[in-house]
């Protein structure tokens, strides 16, 4: 097992130590059945990195993403995000972290139906307490940057998959997060569109220095990243830098 030492002495953006996750399932016959998905995962990711997490189904990569995204809490272990111990944060503070520090991009896009692309992008700003007019203006700018300026009044079901994912990326970026977590963002897209979306991520990483953590099981998608982490049965089995 290889590991990459952080190049700078500064606090890494993500530091995870001996993270475990056990799901307890209620079973009618046997009472509670425990199933462990993550075993002592330790990882640290610096600012500006572009990390791809790979693994087969059931390897625990999505669970790891949920923990990194503060959507779930670990059974044991520690997680520091930008130096803050996530376990010590309240529900309200976690919501604020998701709002300000993180941006999510999902495989299924997860846009809000019955809302226009513009409103979808503006929603995180509303939760952050930004005024309606200001958030709409900022949302429009972001849609413009991702090449969707003309589609701001469209609803998600009127847009193609690639366009929907661009809307989702705009939404993830709207609060200027340091970190973007992308869970198989190209899983529902064809090869060409996948390439375009990955291009967007690459540019965000290069030009704006946004840290990106990406889950995928496709090698050519992982190739866009600068670091590759492999998971197998809940353990990190490989961690290396790649040249791009």
């Amino acid at each position: 097992m290889m590991s990459v030492q952080s190049e700078s002495s500064a606090e890494p953006l993500i530091r995870v130590e001996r993270l475990c996750k056990i799901y307890s399932l209620e079973s009618g016959v046997n009472g509670t059945v425990n199933s462990q998905v993550l075993y002592d995962v330790s990882l640290s990711i610096n600012r500006g990195e572009f990390v791809a997490i790979m693994g087969h189904s059931g390897s625990g990569k999505s669970t790891l993403m949920n923990l990194l995204g503060c959507l779930d809490t670990p059974t044991s272990g520690h997680y520091w995000l930008a130096g803050r111990d996530v376990a010590s944060l309240s529900e309200k503070e976690l919501a604020s972290v998701r709002n300000h520090n993180l941006g999510f991009v999902f495989q299924g896009f997860n846009l809000l139906k019955r809302m226009t692309a513009l409103d979808n992008v503006a929603t995180p700003l509303l939760y952050a307490g930004v005024s309606r007019a200001e958030s709409r203006q900022r949302a429009q700018e972001l849609l413009q940057q991702t090449g969707l300026g003309k589609f701001s009044e469209y609803q998600p079901n009127q847009l193609s998959g690639g366009q929907q994912q661009r809307v989702a990326i705009s939404r993830a970026l709207v609060n200027n997060p340091q970190l973007i977590l992308a869970d198989e963002p190209t899983g529902n897209l064809d090869t060409q569109t996948s390439g375009e979306i990955m291009g967007v991520f690459k540019r965000l990483n290069r030009e704006k220095g946004i840290t990106i953590v990406l889950v995928t099981h496709e090698d050519d998608i992982a190739a866009y990243a600068s670091r590759l982490v492999r998971l197998k049965d809940g353990r990190v089995i490989h961690d290396s830098k790649v040249d791009s």
Binding site: A95, N99, N110, L112, P124, Y127, R171, N175
Partner: peptide, 16 residues
């Protein structure tokens, strides 16, 4: 439920 999940993921707290 899913919509609620999405809203929470993009920063809605329980109060919202």
């Amino acid at each position: 439920t899913r919509e609620i999940g999405i809203r929470m993921a993009i920063g809605a707290n329980r109060r919202a």
